[in-house]
Amino acid sequence: MRIGILGSGQVGQALARGYARHGHEVRIGTRQAEVGGLPTGPPAEVAAAAELVVLAVRGSAAEALAGSLAGELDGTVLVDATNPLDASTGSPQLFVGHTDSLGERVQRAAPGARVVKAYNTVGNALMVDPQLPGGPPSMFIGGDDQAAKDTVTGLLRDTGWDVVDLGGIEASRWLEPMCLAWVAVGARTGTWGHAFRLLRPEG
Rank of each mutant, 00 (worst) to 15 (best):
145 D>N: 05
123 G>A: 05
102 L>G: 11
129 D>Q: 00
137 P>S: 04
146 Q>H: 09
119 Y>M: 14
102 L>Q: 12
99 T>M: 09
138 S>L: 01
139 M>S: 14
110 A>P: 05
100 D>N: 12
142 G>A: 13
142 G>V: 01
111 P>D: 09
135 G>L: 05
117 K>V: 10
146 Q>D: 15
100 D>C: 11
92 P>K: 02
122 V>A: 13
138 S>E: 09
110 A>V: 03
110 A>K: 08
121 T>C: 12
140 F>A: 06
101 S>W: 01
135 G>P: 00
122 V>W: 03
126 L>D: 09
110 A>Y: 05
148 A>T: 09
102 L>M: 08
102 L>K: 02
107 Q>L: 11
127 M>R: 08
150 D>Y: 08
133 P>G: 04
132 L>S: 03
116 V>E: 03
110 A>T: 02
123 G>Q: 06
118 A>C: 06
149 K>R: 08
140 F>H: 02
130 P>M: 09
145 D>L: 12
150 D>A: 12
139 M>G: 00
115 V>L: 10
133 P>K: 02
119 Y>H: 15
120 N>D: 10
133 P>S: 01
97 G>I: 03
120 N>Q: 01
141 I>Q: 01
103 G>H: 08
100 D>S: 14
145 D>Q: 01
118 A>H: 07
114 R>L: 14
139 M>H: 00
128 V>H: 05
103 G>R: 09
105 R>S: 13
107 Q>C: 12
124 N>Q: 12
108 R>V: 07
135 G>C: 09
126 L>S: 09
139 M>Y: 00
144 D>P: 08
111 P>F: 07
132 L>G: 11
132 L>Q: 09
138 S>I: 00
95 F>Q: 04
108 R>K: 12
116 V>N: 04
121 T>M: 05
130 P>H: 08
119 Y>E: 03
123 G>Y: 01
92 P>A: 05
141 I>T: 02
141 I>V: 12
138 S>H: 03
108 R>A: 13
130 P>D: 13
143 G>Y: 03
149 K>E: 00
119 Y>F: 15
135 G>W: 03
138 S>V: 04
115 V>M: 05
105 R>Q: 14
119 Y>Q: 11
99 T>Q: 15
97 G>P: 04
98 H>C: 11
107 Q>W: 07
134 G>I: 06
128 V>M: 07
133 P>L: 01
